[in-house]
Amino acid sequence: MEAEAQYRSQVKAVWRATIIIGIVTVFEVSLALSHFFFFYEHPKLVINVFMTLATLLKAFYIIAEFMHLQYEKRTLIITLGLPLVFLTWLIVVMLVEGKFAFSLLH
């Protein structure tokens, strides 16, 4: 019976994550549209930051809940998480480089 209860709680957790992801998606799209319809003259930077954070939140739920990672052994989580440091550095470098190329051109 314990397995059955565990199964039920897992199913519940997945649907909960689905609803959260759905709400976040609606939030994102409405942010984008609100900028489009109401604040078109203003820079989009703040809204972009919020949308990126929302996407990271969705990514977290997909990885943690759908891919089941938050229930795995800690070593696996660390093994997969640490290399993201390299990615972060790559992202920083590339965006700085893009900006630098922009400043050279204009």
Binding site: L90, V93, M94, E97, G98, A101
Partner: peptide
């Protein structure tokens, strides 16, 4: 495009 992108 940007050739330096490739180099990176």
């Amino acid at each position: 495009g940007n050739p330096i992108l490739f180099q990176h």
